[in-house]
């Protein structure tokens, strides 16, 4: 394994961390992007892209919601894709290796945030004197502390594990491999359960089942379904709702 590859993998990990801190959370940390980049570094963009797509679907809904982060998808995608491509195995291996390591790295992130907590009061001290530039600087010290350690950890994982990966993967018996496949097909359930628990609102819950049944039985195109539901929702709100304010509201949207 070359030094150049390690440096590039570290940069990919940094990009993943930077997405949240410096790019306004623009989905640059998702497997589609990260795995494709890892694939490119390892000389097989196509394989990375395909694994990235599969990981994306398996880990849909797994991302930080509020303060809870179930698994760090960036390191999961980097390590998982690295293992799958270097051993020539499939996405099941990527998902099985990536997700638990992602959970470990999520602990690193939580640890860094706890470590930084006492320094929050520094901001109050600066504010007292109106030193806004110092607040901005502190903001970025926090940013680096949040972003760099997890990125370093995922690369250290690869450096430490690379010599043994082949042996470990080859030692996994066939039935367990099948089981890993079953597990990774089930895993999106965790993400969806997380999304549901955020959106849980008794009045609207039947709509979850509506969506589920429509997709199970009719499998429509997802964009078409979205537009249909959006139109029905707008119809319900603006037409069948109480009509007194509608005119005002429409004028204001136009402004």
């Amino acid at each position: 394994m070359e030094v150049m590859q390690i440096v590039l993998l570290f940069l990919i990990a940094c990009l993943g961390s930077a997405n949240w801190c410096y790019c306004g959370d623009s989905l640059l940390d998702r497997p589609i992007i990260i795995s494709s980049l890892v694939g490119t570094v390892l000389g097989d963009f196509q394989a990375g892209l395909i694994i990235g797509g599969q990981l994306e679907l398996a880990w849909i809904g797994i991302y930080a919601i509020g303060v809870s982060l179930p698994s760090d998808v960036v390191s999961g995608a980097i390590i998982g894709t690295y293992v799958a491509i270097t051993t020539g195995t499939s996405f099941e291996v990527a998902a099985a290796v990536g997700l638990p390591t992602g959970i470990l790295i999520a602990y690193v992130k939580t640890f860094m945030r706890s470590l930084m907590s006492p320094f929050v009061s520094l901001a109050d001290k600066y504010a007292e004197n109106g030193e806004i530039d110092k607040i901005c600087r502190l903001h970025h010290v926090f940013g680096l502390a949040n972003a760099i350690p997890p990125a370093m950890c995922s690369v250290l994982f690869i450096i430490a594990g690379a010599p043994f990966i082949d042996q470990i993967i080859n030692a996994i018996p066939e039935p367990i491999m099948n089981g890993l496949g079953v597990a990774s097909n089930m895993l999106p359930a965790v993400g969806f359960a997380m999304l549901l628990s955020v959106m849980w609102n008794k009045k609207y819950v039947p709509l979850f089942f509506l969506g589920f049944v429509i997709m199970s039985y009719f499998s429509p195109n997802i964009i078409a379904l979205t537009i249909i539901v959006l139109c029905l929702a707008l119809f319900k709100i603006f037409v069948s709702g109480n009509g007194s304010q509608n005119a005002d509201v429409e004028v204001e949207i136009d402004e």
Partner: peptide, 22 residues
């Protein structure tokens, strides 16, 4: 908010039917 709830929950339902397999 109401539009967002209606759209959000229906989509979670539809997408989860597609991608959770067992």
């Amino acid at each position: 908010t109401e539009v967002c709830y209606i759209l959000g929950l229906t989509m979670i339902g539809a997408v989860s039917a597609n991608y959770v397999a067992l």
